[in-house]
Design a protein around this nucleic acid. Structure first.
Lengths: 230, 230
DNA sequence: ACCTGAACACCGTTCAAGT
DNA sequence: ACCTGAACACCGTTCAAGT
C-alpha cells in the first residue's frame, strides 16, 4: 500500500501525455461515462488535483481523448466516388467510435476542436465541391458527420450497462398487439418485442439502422445534386 | 417561512400529477438538465423523498414529462402524401421539443415508453406500408423519429448555457484559413467562424441544418421506394 | 398511506499548504 | 513547478422514524 512502491514498481513521472494515455485506456475498457476523475487519478497513483495541473478540467481531458481516437481513423481512398468515399468513412467512424464507448456523444459537441480531423475535413469538403455541391459542401459535411456520430452515440447509450428500459407501457403495447384498429402499432410492437428479447438481433438491428440511415442520406444528397445541376 | 402558510397560500395536496405539472413547468423554463429533484421538491414545498413515493426515481419522472410533451404534438392531416406527412410531423417535433429543452435527448432513449405516441406510431407505420415500404416501415419510422430527436437534442446541447466551446484549435484552424494546401478546410473554417460570431446566424443555421437533413432522408427514402417497386 | 429529516455514497472542482 | 490532502458545494437515492 506504499504510495511510491506499488506492486507495479516505481511510477513514471506524471505528464499530460500519460494522463491522456490512461484516460483513453479506461475509456476503451469501460466507456467514457463510466470512470471518474478520481478513478483516473487513482489508476495513475496520483491525486485528482494533479489532472487539473497537467491537462485541465474534464472537458479538456475529453477533448484530448477525442483527438487520440480520431487520429486512428483511416482516410478512405482519394480515388473513390464521393458517395462511396463517405460510405467508407462513416462505416469506419462507427467502428472506431464504438471501440471507445461514449466518445461519439462528445464528438458531436467538440468536433470543431478535434485537431486530428483537419485532414479529413479538408478532403471531404473538396470532394463535395468537386462533385458539384458548391456552397452547400460545408453544411453537408457537417450533416453527415453529425448524423453518424449521433447514431453511434445513441447506440452507446443503449448498450451501456446503465441503460434502463422503461417498461411502463409494455402493457399498453401488448394491448394493441392484436388491436384491429391499430394494425400499424401492432406491426411496430412485434418488431420491437423481438429485438428486445434477443441481444444478438438487437445488435444486428443497430448496424442495419446505421447503414440504412447513412445510405438514405447519401441517396438524398444524390437527388439534391441532380437538382443543383438540373 | 411556515411550511403550511407560505405566501402563495395553503398548499394543495401533493399528488403524482402535481409533481409532473411542476416538472414540466420547470423544464419549459430552464430545461430538463437544469433543475434537480431537490429544486423540484422545493418548488412544491415538499421533501425530495416524497417524489419517490408518488412518482418514482428521476427516470420515471422524466418519462412522465415526455408523455405530457408528446401529447401536445399535433397529428398531420391523414390525406397528405407520406413525404409531406412526415415533413410536417418532424417540423412539429422540432418546435414542440424545443419548447422543453433537454427532452429530445430522453425521447431517443425512452420513446418506446411514451404512451402518448401510440397514435402517431400507428398512423406513421400504416402510411409507410400503404406507400409500399412493406417490412421496412418499422425501421423507417424509427430512423426518422430518431434522426429528428437526435438533431433537436444536439441543438439543445449547443443552446444550453452550460455549453462550452473548446477553443483549443481555434489557432489551428486559423493557420489553415488561407493555406493553399487545404482549401477545403479554409472554406469550412470560414463558415464556422461566421456562425460562431453571430448568434442569430447560428440559430438560422440550426434550422437550416435540420430541414436539410430531414429533406435528404425523405428524398433518400423516395429513391429506396423506387428500388423496391422497380 | 404519507411525510420528515437526516444520512449515504458519491461527484467535479478548488485551494492553501507543502516540497 | 509540481504534489498533497482536505475541503466545498453539490447530486440522486434510501430509510428509519414520525403522524
Amino acid at each position: 500500500m506504499g504510495s511510491s512502491s506499488s506492486p507495479s514498481g516505481p511510477r513514471p513521472a506524471i505528464t499530460a501525455e500519460r494522463i491522456v494515455d490512461a484516460a483513453v485506456e479506461l475509456t476503451a475498457e469501460r466507456g467514457l461515462e463510466n470512470w471518474t476523475l478520481r478513478e483516473l487519478a487513482g489508476a495513475l497513483g496520483a491525486y485528482p488535483a494533479v489532472l487539473y495541473h497537467h491537462v485541465g478540467d474534464r472537458d479538456a481531458l475529453i477533448c484530448a481523448v477525442l483527438d487520440r481516437v480520431v487520429a486512428t481513423l483511416p482516410i478512405p481512398d482519394e480515388g473513390l466516388h464521393w458517395q462511396e468515399w463517405f460510405a467508407q468513412l462513416l462505416a469506419d467512424v462507427r467502428v472506431v467510435l464504438h471501440r471507445y464507448p461514449g466518445t461519439a456523444r462528445w464528438m458531436v459537441r467538440f468536433s470543431p476542436s478535434v485537431t486530428a480531423a483537419t485532414t479529413l475535413v479538408d478532403r471531404g469538403i473538396r470532394l463535395l465541391q468537386d462533385a458539384g455541391f458548391g456552397e452547400e459542401s460545408s453544411l453537408i459535411l457537417h450533416m453527415l458527420t453529425t448524423t453518424a456520430c449521433q447514431f453511434v452515440a445513441t447506440e452507446d447509450d443503449r448498450n451501456s450497462p446503465a441503460f434502463s428500459q422503461r417498461l411502463d407501457n409494455a402493457a399498453e403495447y401488448a394491448r394493441h398487439h392484436d388491436d384491429p384498429d391499430h394494425p400499424g402499432l401492432a406491426t411496430h410492437a412485434k418488431m420491437m418485442k423481438a429485438r428486445q428479447a434477443d441481444p444478438e438481433l438487437a445488435m444486428h438491428y443497430q448496424a442495419q439502422m446505421y447503414e440504412y440511415a447513412i445510405r438514405r442520406c447519401l441517396d438524398g444528397l444524390a437527388v439534391r445534386l441532380a437538382e443543383l445541376k438540373g
